[in-house]
Design a protein around this nucleic acid. Structure first.
Length: 463
RNA sequence: GGCGUCGUGGCCAAGUGGCAAGGCAAGGGUCUGCAAAACCCUGAUCACGGGUUCAAAUCCCGUCGACGCCUCCA
C-alpha cells in the first residue's frame, strides 16, 4: 500500500511520490528566536519528527532542514529592550531550543540553517527576482511584485481582490500593490545590517526560507512543512519567490500542523496564553507531550489541558508496562497462536493507519491492542521467549513514534539503595510484618518509588 | 466580508456509505495479607433539521456552535 499525504496546495490526500525514488527532502519552518519557545512550537517539531521517523521506517532516506529565523523586527526590538546585541539574543534562544529538541527526543535535522548565515545567497536571489521583473526597490527597501505572479494565492486559496477588500493593514504608499511584501528591508541606525546593491539592510522574513530551502535541499523539494498559521502569508510568499526564480513547482507536498489550543484559543506569544517548553518539561517528561500529539491528528487543533496531560501520562505508562519481562515458563499453543495473530494485525494495522496521512491516533490503537495481547500472554504464564517477538514489535513501533521505552533515569545513583530497601522489605513480608512493610512502601511512594508485589517477589519503578 | 478546519460516550480520540477502534476516568469481578499492576465484564446511533440511498456518523442542502488564517506567529 502506498503512503498518502494531505497536501494543503491541492486540499486533498495524495499518493506520496518523492522526486527521487527512495529519498525525501523536507524543509520545516522553525521558530523565530526572540523569546522562550512554547509547547505549540514543540508540537510542530514533534509532528515533523514523527513524520520523518515514519518516512525512515518506510525506507526513505530523509534530508531534513529546519531553520531558525534569527533576524527580524521582534528580535531587534527585544534585544534593544534587554540591552544585548540581536545576534546574541538569537543565539541564546537557538541554544535553548536545541536543548528542548533533545529533551523531546526529536531526531536532529540534517541542517539547521539561519538567515544571517545565508545573506549572500539571499542578496543573489533578490537580484534575480529584480532582473525578472518580480522585484522593485524603493528607498533601500525591496518589494516583491505580486501582480506579476499569475498564480499568487494558490496555496491559501486567496485572490488579490479578496484580500484588498479585507486588508486591515495600513498600506505603505510606496508599494505598487498593497499585497507586495518586503524582500529586503533598509536598516535604521543601530540595527543589524548587511551591504547590498540597495544599501545596508536585512532580509525580509519570507525570502530566507526560499533561499535556504534551495541552497540546502535544491530548487524543488518533496515536503515543506510548518504550522498552519504559516500558510498565509509566509508559505504563499515563499512559493511566489521561489517559483518566480526557478520556474518550477517548489514543494510537492505542503504539510501543515494544527495549532495548540489553550483555554479554547490558539496558544501564541502575542496572545500571551502560553506554556513554555521549559515549564512543561520541568513537570513532565518529553514523551508525555509526544503522546498528546500522537493521540490526536496532526492537522487538527490540539487542546492543552491538565486532563489531557494526565491521560497521556497514563497511556504512556501502559505501553511501557507491557514491555515488562515475562514471568512464566511457556505458553500454550492456542495462546501463542493468538499472540502471533495479534502481531500480524498490529504490524498491518499500524502501517495502514500511518500510510493514511500519518494517522497516529489510529495507529496507536493497534499498539494498545498489542499491549493487551502481551499482558494476556504474560498472565497466562508466557516465557520470555514466547513474549519477545511481540514486545520487540511494540518496542519498534514505539521507536517509530519516537517514544522512549523507559523513563529517562533520574536519581539513577539511588537505584542500588532502593534495591536494598525493597529486599529488606521482602524479609519483613516473609515474616508477615505487614504494618512495617506497608509503611516502607508508603514512604518509598512519597519519594516517588512505586513498589509492586506479586507472588514472585517485589519490583519497583519510578512514579 | 473572503478562505479553511471542526462538532463522535464524563474526558481525549479513530473511523468518512454497510451492524461505532483505542486510551484515560468510573462501576463490578479475578488475582493479592493489603495496595499496585495485569486480566475479565459494563456504557454512545455520532451538534440539530431536511434530503439522496436497500443502507449514512460517513454524501448533499440548511441551521446552530467552536476554532484558525486574511497583521507578527509553529
Amino acid at each position: 500500500m502506498a503512503l498518502r499525504i494531505y497536501n494543503t496546495l491541492t486540499r486533498q490526500k495524495e499518493t506520496f511520490e518523492p522526486l527521487t525514488p527512495g529519498q525525501v527532502s523536507m524543509y520545516v519552518c522553525g521558530p523565530t528566536v526572540y523569546d522562550n519557545a512554547h509547547v505549540g512550537h514543540a508540537m510542530s517539531s514533534l509532528v515533523f519528527d514523527i513524520i520523518r521517523r515514519y518516512l525512515e521506517f518506510r525506507g526513505y532516506q530523509v534530508r531534513h532542514a529546519m531553520n531558525y529565523t534569527d533576524v527580524d523586527d521582534k528580535i531587534i526590538q527585544r534585544a534593544n529592550k534587554v540591552g544585548i546585541p540581536p545576534v546574541q539574543l538569537a543565539e541564546k534562544y537557538i541554544n535553548q531550543y536545541m536543548g528542548h529538541l533533545q529533551d523531546l527526543n526529536v531526531t536532529p535535522a540534517t541542517v539547521y540553517p539561519r538567515a544571517t548565515q545565508e545573506i549572500p545567497q539571499i542578496v543573489q536571489m533578490i537580484t534575480s527576482l529584480g532582473e525578472n521583473g518580480y522585484a522593485y526597490a524603493v528607498e533601500g527597501d525591496v518589494y516583491f511584485r505580486v501582480t506579476n505572479d499569475e498564480d499568487y494565492g494558490k496555496l491559501s486559496g486567496r485572490h488579490l481582490e479578496d484580500m484588498q477588500a479585507g486588508a486591515r493593514i495600513s498600506v505603505d504608499e510606496r508599494k505598487e500593490h498593497p499585497m507586495d511584501f518586503a524582500l529586503w528591508k533598509a536598516s535604521k541606525p543601530g540595527e543589524p545590517a548587511w551591504d547590498s546593491p540597495w544599501g545596508p539592510g536585512r532580509p525580509g522574513w519570507h525570502i530566507e526560507c526560499s533561499v535556504m530551502s534551495m541552497h540546502h535541499l535544491g530548487e524543488q523539494i518533496d515536503i515543506h512543512g510548518g504550522g498552519n498559521d504559516l500558510i498565509f502569508p509566509h508559505h504563499e510568499n515563499e512559493i511566489a519567490q521561489t517559483e518566480s526564480v526557478t520556474g518550477k513547482p517548489f514543494a510537492r507536498y505542503w504539510v501543515h500542523n494544527g495549532m495548540m489550543q489553550l483555554a479554547g484559543e490558539k496558544m501564541s506569544k502575542s496572545l500571551g496564553n502560553l506554556v513554555t517548553i521549559e515549564e512543561f518539561l520541568s513537570k513532565h517528561e518529553g514523551d508525555v507531550l509526544r503522546m498528546m500529539v500522537l493521540n490526536s491528528s496532526y492537522r487538527n487543533p490540539l487542546t492543552f489541558s491538565e486532563d489531557v496531560i494526565v491521560q497521556a501520562e497514563r497511556a504512556l505508562e501502559r505501553l511501557r508496562l507491557a514491555l515488562r519481562p515475562a514471568t512464566g515458563a511457556g505458553l500454550a499453543a492456542e495462546a501463542a497462536q493468538s499472540l502471533a495473530q495479534q502481531i500480524d494485525a498490529t504490524r498491518q494495522g499500524f502501517t495502514e493507519a500511518m500510510d493514511d496521512d500519518f494517522n497516529t491516533a489510529g495507529a496507536m490503537g493497534y499498539l494498545f491492542d498489542l499491549a493487551r495481547a502481551i499482558n494476556q500472554a504474560r498472565d497466562l504464564g508466557a516465557s520470555a521467549e514466547a513474549l519477545t517477538p511481540a514486545q520487540d514489535l511494540l518496542r519498534q513501533f514505539m521507536g517509530v513514534f519516537g517514544l522512549r521505552t523507559e523513563r529517562a533515569v533520574e536519581g539513577g545513583q539511588a537505584a542500588p539503595f532502593i534495591d536494598l530497601l525493597v529486599q529488606m522489605r521482602r524479609e519483613l513480608r516473609q515474616q508477615k510484618l505487614w504494618a512495617l512493610s506497608d509503611q516502607l512502601r508508603d514512604r518509598l511512594a512519597e519519594l516517588g518509588v512505586l513498589v509492586e508485589d506479586s507472588k514472585d517477589g517485589s519490583t519497583w519503578r519510578w512514579k
